[in-house]
């Protein structure tokens, strides 16, 4: 016999899951629409938007759109480009931004407040509004590459990486996190004679898993999914183009919507994988704090 308490708990649980599922539907329906549409021929796709069929794999289902996009766009090349650009930027960004944030959060130095204030102020500047001046800047910078010293960074990987490494959001994220860490850890290490860099590496990094994971995901997204105007301006050669430019390849006078959906599905996969991979960092940290629902 079950006690009334248990039944109540069960009802509560069911309600809780129902709510979670209802919210999930709100978030997932355009994505289901995208994936289902990627399996349909254009005409059917468009007719289906009139009904709930848009969310169902019904009618003339095939992978034809997926085969077709490889004909139209160098998909693999673009994805690898994006992964390389994004991966390099994220790695360098995590290192340099956390290092700077460490300095802002724990060290006491002249000019710290004003520099931090200026950095935070740059959060305000939308990229679109400085794109053209930035183009002028990178076009006048030297580069040492295989061809020796050259001027101007256009048409390369590094022009898509270096300007994006340091950003205020990432620094800010780390600063806010570091500020909440107990100061006595650092005091103790200082007394033991550790250098600042050693403290950063041996004391701070090991306990900062969650913020690194968060920063990595956010940066990855910005670099992978939201890079659009900049590559348009600085890349003239197909070999360096990232995935979002590939989307433009589909917008001809008569758009092949099924292919667009297939391309969107394919290019979204790497980000999802990256997120799932890093999600473990959240899970373990949640487990360690042991918050009860």
């Amino acid at each position: 016999m079950s006690s009334p308490d248990l039944t109540l708990d069960r009802i509560k649980l069911i309600m809780r899951y129902s709510f979670l599922i209802a919210v999930a539907l709100v978030f997932v329906f355009p994505i289901v629409f995208m994936v289902m549409s990627s399996l349909k021929p254009d005409l059917q796709l468009l007719v289906d938007t009139n009904s709930l069929r848009a969310f169902l794999p019904v009618g003339d289902i095939s992978l034809d759109n997926y085969f077709a996009i490889f004909e139209r766009v160098p998909v693999i090349r673009f994805i690898l480009n994006s992964i390389f650009i994004t991966g390099t930027t994220v790695a360098l960004s995590l290192f340099l931004c956390s290092l700077a944030a460490f300095s802002f959060a724990f060290l006491d130095w002249k000019g710290r407040e004003i520099v931090l204030a200026i950095i935070l102020a740059t959060l305000i500047v939308p990229f679109e509004t400085i794109a053209v001046p930035l183009l002028m800047v990178v076009n006048n910078l030297p580069w040492f590459g295989l061809d020796g010293l050259t001027w101007g960074w256009l048409n390369s990987y590094h022009v898509q990486i270096i300007p994006w490494i340091a950003d205020a959001l990432t620094i800010f994220l780390f600063v806010q996190y570091f500020k909440d860490l107990p100061k006595d850890l650092i005091e103790a290490a200082r007394i033991d004679g550790a250098t600042w860099f050693q403290i950063y590496r041996k004391v701070i990094i090991p306990i900062s898993g969650p913020v690194f994971a968060t920063a990595a995901i956010l940066k990855f997204l910005i670099m992978y999914s939201h890079q659009y105007i900049w590559p348009l301006m600085v890349i003239q050669s197909e070999e360096f183009r990232p995935v979002m430019i590939g989307l433009q390849y589909f917008f001809q006078l008569n758009v092949a919507w099924g292919e667009v959906m297939a391309y969107l599905t394919i290019v979204t996969l790497p980000v999802l994988v990256f997120y799932l991979f890093l999600q473990r960092a959240f899970i373990t940290s949640i487990a360690s704090t042991g918050i009860k629902g």
């Binding site: 002028m136 076009n139 348009l232 917008f251």
Partner: peptide
């Protein structure tokens, strides 16, 4: 030959010209 997507072709050329990098 170097191919560009049509929708944003003009923007790409203007940016390249601005930077002195035309074909």
């Amino acid at each position: 030959l170097e191919n560009f997507p049509q929708d944003t072709y003009n923007e790409s050329v203007v940016a390249a010209a601005f930077a002195g990098n035309l074909p």
